[in-house]
Computed example of a mutant assay.
Amino acid sequence: MDSTSSEIALDYSPFLRTYKDGRVERLMGIHVVPPSLDPKTNVQSKDVIYSQEQNLPSRLFLPKNINPNQKLPVLVYYHGGGFCIESPFSPHYHNFCNKLVAEANIIIVSIDYRRAPEHHLPAAYDDSWTVLEWVASHVNGDGPDEWLNHHADLNSVFFSGDSAGGNIAHRMAMKYGEQKLSDINLVGIVLIHPYFWGKEPIGNEVKEAETRSKIEGFWYFAYPAASGSDDPWINPATDPLFGSLGCSRVLIFVAEKDFLRDRGWYYSELLKKSGWEGSVEVIEAKEENHVFHLFNPENENAKALLKSMASFINQEEKS
């Protein structure tokens, strides 16, 4: 056996390891569950290919008991995992989407995108835009998926994601603001503990030199061609087009004990100063850590997060 097959090149435990022979061993986010009719929420799900070229699927979630032609808001969801691990088929993402669909009465398109290091960024960004084009193709009711043809209200579209997925949701809203997709109307974005960074520490980051080093290293691991920690893809403060964010409402969730907490608040402050004319709100969960809502979904803060998301999405219909 080639000795390099067991030699570790990079160890990012507890997330993943890479080996000198090129093998990638993911240590988290490797479990998957099939689509189903969830008995607890009465939400049904199925997997549909959105990119024939890359053979990439999305998992669609739809309430079971709706009228044949009832139109519902659409939430496009981008999973987290540092651009390297996890998938929409992980039990905690599957369960989270089931609960959110039941709470908000919406359709969710939870997407699988190519992950680093096999596919470095911007591959995940490219895939995340491709799925939006795929969703938009249902505008006349003759797209490739019947659920979206019959039930998607493309005048009421939202993007969301947690951690790296929050970063992606932001980037897609930026691209939408620059290029538009005339067949969908982006109302708002929901960023859950979003993965943003910067060369200069802010807030409590000054006390966390070791954590900062790991986060910066992970960014380069996912995107070797990036210009650094102040690349606009990871640091909105350096993006001269930030004020052209392509939606009118933003909701940001942060967690008190999360190492990314200050970045969420900073994003809000930057957005208010950017010339963008929409409304932005930040909700902080006390005594909680990064993506707590996925791993401890029954606690009160996780339930409150779910209700706040549902209220944010349905606000447009009530206004």
Rank of each mutant, 00 (worst) to 15 (best):
Q52T: 08
I30L: 08
W233P: 00
P236E: 00
H150C: 14
Q179D: 09
Q44E: 15
S248N: 10
E7H: 09
V48Y: 06
A136T: 04
H120N: 09
L186T: 04
D145V: 04
L241E: 07
D11M: 10
V250D: 01
G203Q: 10
G161A: 11
S51G: 06
E208L: 12
D145S: 03
A9C: 03
R17I: 06
N185Q: 13
E298T: 14
S6I: 06
V206P: 03
S308F: 06
P232Q: 03
L186Y: 01
H150R: 15
P34L: 13
D258W: 09
G198E: 11
V131L: 10
E200P: 04
A255L: 02
A123G: 01
V206C: 03
L56N: 05
F295R: 10
D142K: 14
E25S: 12
F158L: 08
H138S: 11
R23E: 12
E178Y: 02
V254E: 08
D126H: 10
F15S: 04
S160R: 11
E118F: 00
H150Y: 12
Q315L: 12
A209E: 13
E298V: 12
G203T: 05
S137I: 02
I202E: 07
D127K: 01
S3R: 11
E86Q: 14
E284S: 10
V139E: 06
N65Q: 13
V280T: 12
N42E: 15
H170M: 13
H170R: 14
A209L: 03
T4P: 00
L10F: 14
T18E: 05
K303Q: 13
L132G: 04
Q179A: 08
I30A: 07
L121Y: 03
D47K: 06
V24M: 05
N95A: 10
K71A: 05
P73T: 01
K40D: 14
P240S: 10
I283V: 11
R114E: 05
A9W: 01
I108T: 09
Y93R: 13
P57A: 10
R263W: 15
P297S: 11
L154W: 05
P194C: 12
P88Y: 07
K175T: 01
E7R: 13
I313M: 07
F89D: 09
S36N: 15
S268C: 14
Y78P: 05
E205C: 05
L191Y: 07
Y19Q: 09
P144A: 11
S45K: 09
L121F: 09
P14N: 03
K99E: 10
K273N: 13
V280N: 01
A222L: 13
P91M: 11
D112F: 03
R59H: 00
V32D: 02
A285T: 02
N204F: 07
V74Q: 01
W129R: 08
H119N: 15
P232D: 04
